[in-house]
Design a protein around this nucleic acid. Structure first.
Lengths: 125, 125
DNA sequence: GTAGCTGCAAACCTTTTGCGCGAAC
DNA sequence: GTTCGCGCAAAAGGTTTGCAGCTAC
């Protein structure tokens, strides 16, 4: 395992993901930081998000474009089919499911429960 | 709504997705059809998969690369974290969840339950 | 004859990567 | 001083799109 050094950029990227409630994409993080770090590179954002996801410091949400979540406690998500926004769900994550889902030979490490629907903003269009 | 015409390509694309149990990607469908339809274009595969997904004739599975499923009955999926393969899960889909998950102002249309783990093939590496 | 669909190729967007310089230790 | 991280730019997927010709109706 490689030694990891402090970097201002990584800390700010993490803070942006943590402060946001919208599970930002790499591009969103980049845009959010551009005003204060004008020299920031999008490649750096990707590198750090991926690194923190690998460490388990962030969770990566699959989708057409990857989103990141700093809330590590398992929970569910709601995804709007119209605008693509993702918000946290109210239903708790049921870890017991992982035990009942075992299939022949598989080792289950977790699950993701994503509800699809229309968000309030898009419903009124 | 636009009128839709029959096309040999679309039918074969659908049949490939339906016949496969691996939830193929566009590229996989393309490769599968190349021998019999050498002039087939990857763009045509994408266009038709997307069109059938929009119609509800296929389901699109999110991920780093999009996969398609012709099994419309709700069910769960197992995704291998190592090789990325997706297989159908044994646990039935619980439609009742959609009613309990309602958040302020949202209209829920369905949900996706994806288990992550290691498949038998990758476990033995 | 009139749309719709195809094949082809270019464009797009997201994500990854190679490299030389600057920063952390 | 050594190693790691950054910024930059190019490359690498995956997916979409414009267009001219062919096809279903």
């Amino acid at each position: 395992m490689k030694e990891q050094r402090y970097s201002q950029q990584r800390e700010r990227i993490y803070q942006v993901v943590q402060a946001s409630r919208e599970h930002p994409t790499a591009q969103m993080v980049y845009d959010a930081l551009r005003p204060e770090l004008p020299k920031l590179s999008l490649g750096t954002v990707y590198r750090n998000l991926q690194q923190m996801a690998a460490e388990g410091r962030l969770t990566q949400l699959d989708g057409p474009v990857a989103r990141f979540d700093a809330m590590l406690a398992p929970h569910t998500h709601l995804c709007c089919a119209s605008c693509g926004q993702v918000v946290d769900g109210v239903l708790p994550y049921d870890a017991a499911l992982d035990r009942t889902a075992v299939a022949e030979g598989w080792t289950i490490t977790g699950h993701s429960l994503i509800f699809t629907g229309i968000c309030p903003a898009c419903a009124g269009k």
